[in-house]
Design a protein around this nucleic acid. Sequence first.
DNA 1: TTAGTCATGTAATTGGTTACATGATTCG
DNA 2: CGAATCATGTAACCAATTACATGACTAA
Lengths: 194, 194
Amino acid sequence: MKLSATGKVILGMLAAKPRSGYEIKQLVDSSARFFWAASYGQIYPELKKLEEAGLIAGDDSSRGGRQRTVFRLTSGGKRAAREWISRPPEVLETRDEGLLKLFFAGSIDARRAAEVARERGATSRAKAAELRLIAEQVEAAGRPEGPAAEPDAGSLTVLRYGIEINEWAADWFERAAEDLEREATGAVSAAGGR
Amino acid sequence: MKLSATGKVILGMLAAKPRSGYEIKQLVDSSARFFWAASYGQIYPELKKLEEAGLIAGDDSSRGGRQRTVFRLTSGGKRAAREWISRPPEVLETRDEGLLKLFFAGSIDARRAAEVARERGATSRAKAAELRLIAEQVEAAGRPEGPAAEPDAGSLTVLRYGIEINEWAADWFERAAEDLEREATGAVSAAGGR
DNA sequence: TTAGTCATGTAATTGGTTACATGATTCG
DNA sequence: CGAATCATGTAACCAATTACATGACTAA
């Protein structure tokens, strides 16, 4: 069975423990959203499909009149998850509007090129700060359980990656902006040097 | 008028000079594809829409029996392009399957976590090499025109970004893999320090 | 009591890829 | 002459967001 993008994140989320669709969405929004988004419009239909395929099973967990279904991996689902994780990664896509603007800045409005780079740097800086906040919350939530709990090792790892790569990108764009400013003001330009 | 993702890349590509749909696709595939993809199935219909909206105009440029239409920005199109580039960037999305696997590796198959990180590092390393090749081609193609030509300053800038960030990511994942290996083999683990 | 959050779901629309279909020209 | 490349386009399908719709429970 071929897993869809949303199918992959659902199987992964259920590997640690059973959860409802709502919980999956919360977890995706904190920590995974920055590299693998999913909306309710994808999650609920996909839960049904995965159940039909026998990879997950739903158990009713309504409290009072409030309906709730928690899903868990079946043995087939566990197998599918292990199978998926052992295959080499395939999807790696980016849509980066700031980079696109920088790409064209020279031909559309050369005087703004440095500004465009600076803005893109600010975007990365802000993203890093946002992820740092989330990471702190995850760390704080994990600590009370004490050692050996290791609440979300993977979650913290990818959050750190997100923080560090965004800081790196912010620095890069700031340097690029400085270069562009120097070119624009004085400087003979032309000469190949970056 | 609201520009679609493909509309943005088309306006940008035409800002430097008039081009056919086919040429736009070639240019996207070299240099822009790694952060802003576009397929024929998007490009040709979008060219029609942009023409209807008065942002671009097509001139017949068929040679012999081979049909060809080159499009250029109208004054409205130039305005739209400048307007777009001066707005703060919005879209910044990533789909990173290797990171997603690393995220879940601990709960799905802890023994493979290091391997997963190593594979993701290799992916970035390969991507960097691929972009380096393209950058060399772009540099070589630009040189004969001599100085003052500056064939694709923006293109080289974003390619360098792509190369450097992928090298950075490759290093990061390799370090992460080493940490995970150390944790897996000996080590008391638990203790928070990375 | 009302705002917030828990909880599930669908419909409309948009965005995008892949595959298909067609045909001319050019270069080895 | 055959393969590669130039060149344009459509149809089927899949992916995904947004907005909408509904309702219960909880804490201020």
